[in-house]
Amino acid sequence: MEEREKVVEIKNLKKSFGDLHVLKGVDLDLFRQENLVVLGKSGSGKSVLIKIMVGLLRQDSGSLKVFGKEVASLKKKELNELRLKIGFSFQNSALYDSMTVRENMEFPLVRNEKNLTRKDINTRIEELLDSVGLPQTINQMPSELSGGQKKRIGIARTLILNPEIMLYDEPTAGLDPITCGEINNLILEVRERYKTSSIVITHDLACAKQIGDRMAVLLDGQFDAVGTFEEVFPNAEDERIKSFYDYNFINS
């Protein structure tokens, strides 16, 4: 694993909101074409971590490099160039609710790729809606879609710019087990088809086990355990990780 190319490198990253210290010196690497699952309790700073990665938040100290570039020191134009390589799937999908599915998909595409013809745009949108299994929703409004459909369209929208890294913020939150399974399969398909590297934020261990190559458990502002599912969970010695595992698998 160590010989593979690192696409994200995080070193001693710290972030506080007032007196609340969310990240207390985080170290983590993401390798090319791997699915890394970040687990942790609500409010443990998982989403903060990926928001720093796309420049929505800025760290207090430490280093976060994406494709070798220090995100915090990028100028607006450079940051936007980097953002084109990163797809961010939001927890609540964040579909633009005044636009149809087609307009949602078009929005980033027409603003970033100026030379496309109408035919190219339509082909790209239809191809992506096909790949998430929702071609029939093209003219629907987000309010007409179910939670699972919104997640799929949200993922399709992020894929329209051909990102190399996908960041999924709680992709299965609030979904029924069957739809969760479908979203997990979609995440795996996305990696296979588009050759993306992914960070998946979740507190759902079943989801993590299904899609993750490696797990990273964020507890008290630091990664306590990083490794494969088998390395991190079944025989965990740390009580907090153990209780996390027990709660997910034994209680449910």
């Binding site: 928001k51 796309v54 420049g55 929505l56 936007n80 160039e81 953002r83 084109l84 990163i86 961010f88 939001f90 927890q91 609540n92 964040a94 579909l95 633009y96 609710d97 005044s98 929005f107 980033p108 603003r111 970033n112 929208r157 992020t158 710019l161």
Partner: peptide, 21 residues
């Protein structure tokens, strides 16, 4: 209300991270 609801549902962040303004 419109922009406020877009802000709290992360739609503005979604525009930002897709390299649009």
């Amino acid at each position: 209300a419109e922009i406020g609801s877009m802000k709290v549902t992360e739609q503005i962040d979604a525009m930002e991270v897709s390299a649009t303004n």
